[in-house]
Nucleic acid binder design. Structure first.
Lengths: 246, 246
DNA sequence: AGCAAGACTTTTGTATGACAAATAGGACAT
DNA sequence: ATGTCCTATTTGTCATACAAAAGTCTTGCT
């Protein structure tokens, strides 16, 4: 079995590094449940044979997976899958592998739960702690949302809006959440395929967040964010196809 | 320059793998600001010379750092430090390197801010979503806290309590927060060096969380957690030595 | 028989040397 | 001045060899 080229969003085919492709292949198989936590993985030589690569390339893939908390390696023992609680779920790759093996509905439900947990607090912090240039970035992102024409522009400006808000909060420990938001939004937008009729409403909700942040009104920002998330939840449950996978 | 053995908590000296030691050395230098985001790092051969290791070992260290979002490597370009917003701050290693280069007060302040943001919500979720065995684990952790005699036992059982609570929330995306809590608590306990006279009060506060979770009362769990965090904040600001580093 | 010390074996860890591939930046031609 | 090609540097990949760790088996002692 040889390993294919990398299929990215929009169907573009990019051939990443060999070790990156191997990493992805193994990572997806782990996330997909083929190897459960505690289970032993094939040894490096075997992987090399499996994917037609040298042990070097395999080892680099394994080092990355180890750094992401998915596995652990020891001499004579080999590599074992770590318990899920140690997986760096907020890592870009891990999270996207996670996404690819889940049904969309379940994915959106759990990400929304996490968003409801942190984003109101982030909005609050953002209102109270932002610097002028950070606010500027938020305003620019909002303008981009307002003038977005294509689906792609809507998604990217929406993501940028939330990233900017995250930056306003001025707490580095919260940065990794950007990944959740990014994946949630892009999944959401292609979940509700056709042009979203709620976009005007969403714009208004975003605007009220900007206003609250600009006014340094923490509670108002929190409420505005709650309203936005509630609306998003509605959109999700409204456009729910029963259990279409992927 | 050769690279020393690994100094772990409790002063124990463990000699980790060579590539792990190199990774740590470079990681700490990045976190310490010696190499700023955007800056170019020495090439692999240079690192090898610096630490008296082969390119193989250096490359594995670099692969790990790349996986943690600290750097990016490309042929001809070499390795560059990524912007801080891409750093996986919730990775165990990255976070602990971060901790070693910050002053304790600042570290505790920012971690407490993050805790106030997420833990009340976690407590709420935990109350509403826990399974019986998860509650059992929480209760056991609480008992361990109650019967803790040594400082070490207090820290570890406290950490286990919050990890158990996190598990009760049943949302994998929140798991990485365990790292923040773990580091926050252990830093806190050795910040307030002598036997904590507030331990009895802390116990009561933890107990009220257990009760609320057991009663599946979300709002009560949230409030109990808020009370606990407020108390922790008080302890921190009370025992504040002006600006003692490390 | 029971048990412990030591040899064996498997797997990862590290080193070395060689070449391939990517690409920034300079050299050159138009 | 501008676009094209070349080249030098750096990472990416391969092959091979040996070191180190750690289960497992064997052997010998009591």
């Amino acid at each position: 079995m040889t390993i294919g080229t990398d299929r990215r969003k929009s169907g573009k085919v990019s051939k990443a590094n060999l070790h990156a492709r191997i990493e992805r292949a193994i990572g997806e198989r782990i996330l997909g449940g083929e190897f459960s936590p505690g289970a032993a993985l094939p040894n490096e030589a075997a992987w090399g044979k499996t994917y037609g690569a040298s042990r070097t390339a395999v080892r680099e893939a394994i080092k990355s997976l180890t750094a992401k908390g998915l596995i652990q390696s020891r001499p004579k023992i080999g590599s074992r899958v770590e318990p899920r609680s140690r997986w760096n779920m907020l890592d870009r790759d891990v999270f996207s592998w996670h996404r690819t093996v889940m049904d969309r509905k379940g994915f959106l439900t759990s990400t929304q739960e996490a968003r409801r947990l942190v984003e109101p607090g982030i909005a609050d912090l953002a209102a109270r702690k932002h610097s002028p240039p950070q606010l500027e970035r938020l305003v620019i992102a909002f303008r981009a949302m307002s003038s977005a024409k294509t689906m792609t522009e809507m998604v990217s400006s929406d993501v940028e809006f939330h990233e900017a808000l995250l930056a306003c909060a001025n707490n580095e420990l919260l940065m990794p959440f950007g990944i959740i938001i990014e994946q949630a939004l892009s999944t959401l937008f292609d979940y509700t395929t056709q042009r979203n009729p709620h976009y005007q409403r969403a714009l208004k909700l975003h605007e009220s967040i900007v206003r609250a942040v600009a006014a340094a009104d923490g509670p108002a920002a929190r409420d505005a964010m709650l309203a936005l998330l509630k609306d998003t939840d509605r959109v999700i449950s409204a456009s729910a196809p029963p259990d279409k996978r992927r």
